[in-house]
Design a protein around this nucleic acid. Structure first.
Lengths: 335, 335
DNA sequence: TTGAAAGCGCTAACAC
DNA sequence: GTGTTAGCGCTTTCAA
């Protein structure tokens, strides 16, 4: 337990090495304009003193913090956790630290979180969220640092973002369900007011119905809370409605529906089929395991972060609106 | 899109308000030694200019960053995600930001992550991890900022930490299993070399056996990889061993075992019982739902963070080694 | 290849 | 109550 009295600084190193601060700065930052012998001399002192450059001072002087901000709706939602992991991996690859802020209780607005991140002088921000308020848009547009959306839709089309083609994905799976003989397919989501669900998924759903010559009815679309119990509760309603299959916008709700269905004695997939959306581990744990659209969650995060690094370096970014490929993983809840 | 040319600073505000920087600093920081009229005058300019104090400059001058570091083994592990949520909630309550670093690929050592956090001048660090290397211990002991462990054991007993009494928890559940008539109870964990599993859980397991007059056999304890497939694979071995119940150290493995058992035609809980450890959402999604020790994950994180705030303020902390209460949630995998 | 010195934007004595 | 000023620890011209 030998806590040194004082944090050692660049001045200490300079003095002991018999060089100027500028030179120490150069060797610490890998600048080449340093004679090899002085470089070695300085490094020896750095090691001896366990010198650790103060990133805050460095940030103030250089106007770069090598820190990025990440805004995430929930850390305990496997969807976002997987996105975050992708972000984290490439961030650490490029030596960036992450300030993670989540809107857990909704007590602090996303706009405020955004502003706080800018106050901390982050070099860039990745946003994962469901709805972007007008105020947030204003903050983003005024931001001097780049922002990219990961798994979040920018309706304005101006903000770099990484997603999959939600509409087509949903259309395809609903089509599959129809082809499997289901004449009445339900759709359930926890929030129909955000773009991904309300705009893209719902549209894909309607298109599939149309193409099959089936008529769309709002009686087949259900909006619920985002938890297991809500899933279980909505099952009863779906079942009564006469639907024989359902597409669900998230895995948790799907699990709730599946388990309630099974509990009520309905045979899955023989009597009822379900397809879910995110292919998180939940899909592999239920019985039967759930068929799901496979979002490349990790990749979305990773690609978003990679794009952000380019933006931070003022490198050219050809495509601002990236759509990654997805697939369908067939498991036990479809025929 | 009116990106201002230059970030506006305290000097700008001071000039426009016709006061000194010190006064602006005072009002921005809520210092009371300011006349109400000048406070209003300054705030008016602050609002007009959208002044946002530069946290980096503030950090350099005040030697406080209002940022803490969190070291987490994996963001996609529900166990840690829930801990992190507890940390995050109380951190934001106390206006701290979080730099989250995870050891995803093991490419960067925890010791290095720790050092990086210190370089960023965090005011404190919360560590969640399984094993603490000697090198990490050295870093922690030399650290000028407080460190607390959340859901992690400090074998030295010197570092503040928040946990539950793992040994007793396991002893109790194994006892329950024995009382249910099982004469041979297996234990499975993904890593027996860390303290929580190898030291506390295993000891609890042995104690339960002893107290029931059963003899411990290493043939009943299984160590596997940490994934679903490993859980499924270990099921076969457990079943062959003749065990009729199992205590599992994490929910993912438990789900793998449960599903493999069910798939092989074994009736749960009639023919085989399983109790798991973390009560994450996985427990509620399997069929049948899993009986689990209920760790107060969120609370562990929250209490750890609260403790850290005290430490950072040099407040008195009575108890350095906190054990939170836990409970047992009986569901469908036990009689 | 190296050093001197001027900041970066803010806080914290200290003086008035 | 308010202003002056000296740093905080580093990077970055600019000279030498």
């Amino acid at each position: 337990m030998d806590k040194p009295e004082k944090e050692i600084t660049i001045t200490d190193v300079a003095r002991q090495a018999g060089v100027s601060m500028a030179t120490v700065s150069r060797v610490v930052n890998g600048n080449n304009n340093v004679k090899e012998t002085t470089r070695k001399k300085v490094m020896a002192v750095v090691d001896k003193l366990h010198y650790r450059p103060n990133a805050v001072a460095r940030g103030l002087a250089s106007k770069k913090s090598t820190t990025i901000g990440v805004i995430i709706p929930s850390m305990t939602d496997l969807l976002y956790a997987n996105l975050a992991k992708g972000i984290d991996d490439v961030a650490s690859m490029y030596k960036y630290n992450i300030i993670l802020t989540s809107n857990n209780k909704g007590i602090i607005s996303e706009q405020q979180m955004f502003s706080d991140l800018l106050a901390k002088q982050v070099d860039g921000i990745i946003y994962m969220g469901e709805k972007v308020s007008a105020d947030l848009y204003k903050e983003i547009n005024n931001s001097r640092v780049p922002v990219v959306f990961a798994g979040a839709i920018d309706d304005s089309g101006k903000i770099p973002s990484v997603n999959i083609d939600y509409k087509t994905a949903v259309r395809d799976v609903v089509q599959l369900l129809i082809n499997n003989g289901n004449r009445q397919v339900a759709l359930v989501a926890d929030d129909l007011s955000n773009s991904i669900n309300g705009k893209y998924r719902l549209t894909g759903y309607r298109e599939a119905l149309e193409q099959a010559g089936l008529t769309y009815s709002s009686n087949n679309v259900f909006e619920t809370m985002y938890n297991l119990q809500a899933g279980a509760a909505v099952w009863d309603v779906i079942h009564e409605s006469g639907a024989t299959a359902v597409y669900v916008a998230n895995d948790l709700l799907a699990a709730g529906i599946l388990n309630a269905a099974t509990a009520s004695g309905v045979k899955i997939p023989e009597d009822f089929e379900v397809i879910t959306s995110n292919n998180t581990i939940l899909c592999e744990v239920t019985a039967p395991r759930m068929t799901s659209i496979a979002l490349p969650l990790y990749d979305i995060g990773a690609v978003a972060m990679r794009m952000l690094t380019k933006l931070m370096n003022n490198e050219e970014v050809e495509n601002i609106d990236i759509k990654l490929p997805y697939s369908l993983i067939k498991r036990g809840t479809t025929k």
